[in-house]
Design a binder for these strands. Structure first.
Lengths: 352, 352
DNA sequence: TTGAAAGCGCTAACAC
DNA sequence: GTGTTAGCGCTTTCAA
């Protein structure tokens, strides 16, 4: 420590004396181990770069003092925060949960920590949130869904922080991309129902932008396949979050306006489960009279009665891949590609 | 800036020249605005402390440069990271989701950011996670469920960081506490079923420690009330995460060993929904032949068929209160109490 | 393999 | 109200 810093009545211009936090610092550990601070730092970060004897002494000093490195200081000096930010509309929907969980786990395994930001389904908080995130100089930012405000995109690009957009494919990614095509899902579901003999399809769709794109693709394909006798596909919109309740209400509304419907595409498994429950309450035989297909393959889908046919989206793979992208980039490993289409699959069960 | 720092061929000992990141810093903004860095800092952090003219010029400089303050540096200097850490077993269970969401929102509203850590249901990663968290010097740590390892408790106390334990009450909190009594829940459920004429109760319980405590209290109270004809309460254990599937299997197992059961206490709504589905598949009339009560009052409980009676736990209030505790403490506001019992309630619906 | 010096970008503590 | 100075606790750079 600086010997000249202790208060003395010297005639020299005496100025702003400073705090001294009281916490244990690397300097304390170094002193106890009888080495320079930088050596202690090396013992902790690159143990191979110091002699075994020194390593031993530093480790002991750490144990004795209970020293925990200040990663804020380390991050400031090294320009690596080992922090990754994730932005989700909300974690309350089980859709992104899986991704967030996989992210946290994969990151933790490599010594990174996750910072979580929720925008709500409105984009208003997006910009403020972005500043709060960029200000912490994370090593990467994972966006679920696309970042929308032009201002936000600009700031992200200017920040020079690796960005992974997820849960969608777009022609103009900010940086990296892990997702699947919502259009293809809508089309695939229509074809699937057609292949199973359904001819009068309908849909219950969430109002978020991605669900609407799926639904549009579904309607278009259904019309093309002649599954929309009245010229268009009856649709009920359900505001987020999609619930069992909106599923029940959705079926009721659908039957009122189009009683002859023989298949329903629900934009989430929650909605589909609601449809199942409402159908049961009305004595409609799902699987025979009515086909129901959901989206998400949530844990309960296979246990529903009847078991729910659904579009499986692998949130875990998305989270893991996104984490890998960022870790590889941060640690200077070459990455083969910046875009990853993880696809989707239709899980066939009894409800169709 | 330091005039003597530009390279010149002086005879003085010439040493470690340093990086220069290229990013825009407060110094750049200050220079552009024609003020000292500290004045620019004040304009951003305590706008009331500078003259309107200066405020204006600094704001403009920020806008022109796209400056985003480096909160790592700020945090290091001010010893305030405006970061709060939350530790949850997993966010995959919908139980803690609500709390995490309320935390994120309440914190964001005051300019704090949430850092998320998952321990998994095993305590092994707890200590490593704790170091990763403490190293970032968060302004507060929110623990869901109690922190268990003695070592962990010691480190937390030594770190001097405000801690809020949640989702439980304990006689020996580390610091602050927001929760409810699991014992009282078990007892209240037993009494509730008794009051509704049930006399042969059983339970399906998760294997986590809190569920087991609830279940023990439930069994004890049930026996005391004469609701355990065979001397003890039949129980099926379900490992985490509790699912609809384990609920269905649980009911099957329960009926096999105790067919006369007339009420079941499920330690989560997911389990209860599984029981409902299985009962329906077996033609058992829930609400008449069999009473079912869940826990959590999750969104789908009211939409189940029949609607699910359940113990309501207010995760949102827990999250909000915990955030308040930490913000108030950090900003030096006096807090009235360190412990908050938010209680619980039984939501009466058709399943009992 | 080890160390001394010089910051990373910001704010606390004073002085004017 | 504004500026000067001295760090926060760490790591990079360069030298031995």
């Amino acid at each position: 420590m600086n010997d000249s810093s202790h208060p003395k009545n010297s005639p020299a211009p005496e100025r702003a004396r400073r705090r001294k936090s009281g916490g244990i610092t690397l300097a304390d550990v170094a002193k106890l181990a009888g080495v320079a601070p930088i050596t202690a730092s090396r013992a902790l970060n690159t143990p191979d770069a110091v002699s075994p004897a020194v390593l031993e002494r530093v480790k002991e000093a750490v144990a004795r003092t209970g020293y925990v490195p200040n990663l804020l200081a380390g991050g400031l000096a090294s320009r690596k925060s080992r922090l990754v930010a994730a932005v989700v509309p909300t974690i309350a929907g089980p859709v992104f949960m899986e991704t967030v969980q996989a992210l946290t786990e994969t990151l933790a395994a490599s010594g990174y920590q996750l910072m979580l930001g929720q925008t709500g389904y409105h984009n208003s908080r997006e910009d403020a949130l972005l500043d709060a995130i960029i200000g912490r100089r994370p090593d990467g930012i994972v966006l679920t869904g696309i970042m929308h405000s032009a201002e936000g995109r600009r700031r992200l690009i200017a920040s020079n922080i690796p960005v992974v957009e997820t849960w969608d494919l777009t022609a103009t990614p900010i940086d990296m991309l892990v997702g699947f095509s919502h259009e293809k899902i809508g089309q695939a579901v229509a074809e699937y129902l057609h292949a199973h003999g359904r001819r009068k399809v309908a849909s219950i769709s969430g109002t978020d932008e991605r669900a609407e794109r799926r639904n549009r693709a579904f309607s278009d394909a259904a019309r093309a396949l002649g599954m929309a006798p009245m010229g268009q596909v009856p649709t009920v919109m359900a505001p987020p979050p999609t619930t069992i309740g909106s599923g029940r209400a959705g079926l009721a509304e659908l039957l009122a306006k189009a009683p002859e419907v023989d298949a329903i595409f629900c934009s989430s498994d929650m909605l589909a489960l609601g449809v199942l429950i409402e159908a049961q309450a009305r004595g409609i035989k799902v699987g025979q009279d009515l086909a129901v297909i959901g989206l998400g393959d949530m844990e309960f889908a296979k246990d529903a009665n009847p078991a729910l046919t659904t579009v499986r989206l692998d949130g875990t793979t998305i989270g893991r891949t996104a984490a890998r992208f960022i870790i590889d980039r941060t640690e200077g490993r070459p990455i083969a590609t910046k875009v990853c289409d993880i696809g989707f699959s239709i899980v066939e069960r009894a409800s169709v």
